[in-house]
Simulated scan of single mutants.
Amino acid sequence: MSDAPFRVAAARPEERIAWPKSFGTRFLVTVDVEEEFDWSAPLDRMQRATTALSALPDAHRRFAGRGVAPVYLIDHPVATDPAAAPMLREMLADGRSAIGAQLHGWVNPPFDEPDAAAASYPGMLPEAQEAAKLDVLTAAIVAATGARPLGYRAGRYGIGPRTLRLLATRGYRVDSSMRSGYDYAGQGGPDFTAVGPHAFRREDMLELPLTTVFTGAARAGGARLHRGLGRYGRGAFARAGLLQRVALTPEDMPVAAAIAAIDRATADGVRLLTLSFHSPSLVPGHTPYVRDSADLAAFHDWWDRVFAHLDHRGIAPTTLAEVIAAAD
């Protein structure tokens, strides 16, 4: 694994997607469909349980009832679970939802790295290792679903300097690994603080950053000010209404803040909002965000209220296929 931080450059004006007027402003829901593991413990190759998948069909019906067609980004433990294949195929049968790949390097063979931690950010692996893991994952997804994945997300948002090229040469069209405004360099991962929320094209890949915006009176300071404040300063600024970093996810993000962020993003001209969550959050006890039944009720309420606000604003759901066609 490389020790040098991978700092992703901001999109140049010519890289930004010029969405057609007919596309309007839309939103896309992405789901990290993955195994369950202890988020507070060191990564472990043996943690591959996928019991929370049993809740996915009901969640799919909830989304479909709102006209939402999620992109299910599945990883190796899910793709190789025999019980998952018929479930995934049934969800794809709606003709609108899509399957993508999510590379959790620590549970995705081949295991040429010395330990699980070395593969936590797959884009930081040597090129041959990253490519080999991606090939194994892609083949497993095709075998399980009968569909070739066009979208990708690196586990822990861990792309590297070669990832987009490796994806493009394997027929992938879309990457959604960049979490705009976030910095994982201190943990050995990539730095996305220069990346904004607008979609762009780079190395023949359509990049759909996970939507993050800064709200508050000091929002012009953006990611640089947020990083400089430190942990305690960020909390103080958020409570004072000066600066808050808001990602469009129900996981540890209050719904009022998310609604304000939607309004801010659209005011800033963001034409595609990309929302996300992790599939184990559908069952209490698997993630820090949904620990009990009350948290699960709040999780579903978050989506209900966000969807209602998007509908009120005239922001319609879209599909991965529609996004690719509009960007092209």
Results as ranks from 00 to 15, higher is better:
Thr51Trp: 12
Trp19Pro: 05
Val323Gln: 02
Leu225Val: 06
Thr145Asn: 05
Asp252Ala: 15
Arg96Lys: 13
Ala240Phe: 07
Arg45Gln: 12
Arg219Trp: 02
Ser180Met: 09
Thr212Leu: 11
Leu243Tyr: 06
Thr80Pro: 07
Ser97Gln: 08
Val29Leu: 15
Thr51Gly: 13
Leu88Gln: 08
Asp301Cys: 11
Arg173Leu: 10
Arg153Val: 01
His278Arg: 09
Tyr172Ser: 02
Asp135His: 01
Met205Ala: 04
Met253His: 11
His278Asp: 15
Pro149Leu: 02
Lys133Arg: 14
Leu103Lys: 02
Leu137Trp: 01
Glu203Pro: 00
Arg227Gln: 12
Ala49Ser: 15
Ala257Asp: 15
Gln187Thr: 07
Leu296Asp: 13
Leu125Met: 09
Ser276Val: 15
Gly189Glu: 05
Val68Leu: 10
Phe23Thr: 02
Ala257Thr: 01
Arg239Gln: 11
Ala64Tyr: 08
Leu43Lys: 07
Ala132Pro: 02
Gln47Trp: 10
Pro110Ile: 04
Ala218Cys: 04
Ala18Asn: 11
Arg291Val: 14
Pro86Gln: 12
Tyr72Phe: 14
Tyr172Ala: 03
Val107Ser: 03
Ala4Val: 14
Arg313Ala: 05
Ala132Asp: 07
Val142Lys: 05
Asp263Leu: 07
Ala199Asn: 04
Asp112Ser: 14
Glu251Asp: 12
Arg148Leu: 11
Tyr172Asn: 03
Ser281Leu: 08
Gly221Arg: 04
Arg148Glu: 15
Gly151Cys: 15
Ser276Ala: 13
Leu88Gly: 07
Val290Gly: 11
Ala79Arg: 06
Arg239Glu: 10
Gln187Pro: 00
Thr266Phe: 00
Gly233Ile: 09
Phe111Gly: 00
Ala4Asp: 13
Gly95Asn: 09
Thr319His: 06
Leu206Ala: 06
Phe237Tyr: 15
Gly233Val: 06
Ala256Phe: 07
Val136Met: 08
Ile315Cys: 02
Pro109Asn: 10
Ala69Thr: 07
Ala143Phe: 04
Glu127Val: 14
Ser97Asp: 05
Thr215Lys: 02
